[in-house]
Nucleic acid binder design. Structure first.
Lengths: 151, 151
DNA sequence: TATTGTTATACTCTATAACTATA
DNA sequence: TATAGTTATAGAGTATAACAATA
């Protein structure tokens, strides 16, 4: 098969786990409390959308509801996330980052991005631009599909 | 900070977990026995370098020796990998894919690559070329560093 | 002594099932 | 009844420490 999409797929399968591993290592070597990648994604989302309910968060991050509940337990225990009852629908909870959570997220994100940027710095400027463009494409292509939630 | 490397790093941090999740889902939805991403990488390596010893495999995949030992136990148990004593150095073992392992790997790889290629097919031909080039760059940038193994 | 691999043990992350409280 | 969240329980994957066999 000489399909160019297939070549990309093969390369994706080799490159992505490597990068992911580097991200994981960075995430765990910050001076700040360690964050797993799902925890990090959770915190990024809460930073952007404070007040999110547990179910919505679980769907976005791609975890089961109990798993997300447990993760939030941990983040609340570390003082990184606040969990408050929702007034209008008392079944729901409103999640948000605490000030400490925001600070930790900022440090973790910055540290990880610096480490990644350090490697990327080895590329020429046009190559970096290509990379940026390609990554944006990838993000759009692999965005979770919200269109067929209804069964 | 307006460093272009930093922009790439930020995008990397958003795109890579998404793609990784898609890869994981694909890996687990084959009709063939499920493979985790590390198992898949192990099998790809054994396919390319049959006779590899456990330590070398563990270093390549990025697992501890006991973890790799356990993973190999599982793959041997499923009949996908053969584990034989090495004649010259009887401490070592020689690992390889069984014929069944090769067949499973081929199916898993093909299925996963097809699924990924399906998404990539949405890109224009020049964008796919950029992507392929960028991914090759990433793979080189994030290749585990073999230069400073000695401490 | 150093190296290769295994066993023992424990921890984290994840899931499914059963449950509680609210709508 | 249906939905939001928690608790109970179990399984997979990982690590470190202690061990056995070989070099």
């Amino acid at each position: 098969m000489n399909d160019p999409s297939f070549d990309c797929a093969k390369e994706l399968l080799e490159a992505v786990p490597l990068v992911m591993q580097a991200i994981r290592v960075e995430m765990r070597s910050r001076r700040t409390p360690d964050l797993t990648v799902p925890q990090f994604r959770t915190m990024v989302f809460l930073n952007k959308f404070p007040g999110t309910a547990l179910s919505d968060l679980a769907e976005y991050v791609g975890l089961s509801l109990p798993s997300m509940s447990k993760m939030i337990d941990g983040l609340v225990g570390k003082g990184l996330v606040s969990r408050e009852g929702c007034a209008r629908d008392r079944r729901r909870i409103a999640l948000a980052l605490t000030p400490r959570g925001k600070a930790i997220l900022r440090k973790a994100r910055q540290g990880t991005q610096e480490a990644l940027a350090g490697r990327i710095g080895a590329l020429s400027q046009p190559e970096r631009q290509d990379l940026l463009h390609s990554l944006k494409n990838l993000r759009l292509l692999f965005l979770p599909d919200r269109s067929d939630d209804r069964s």
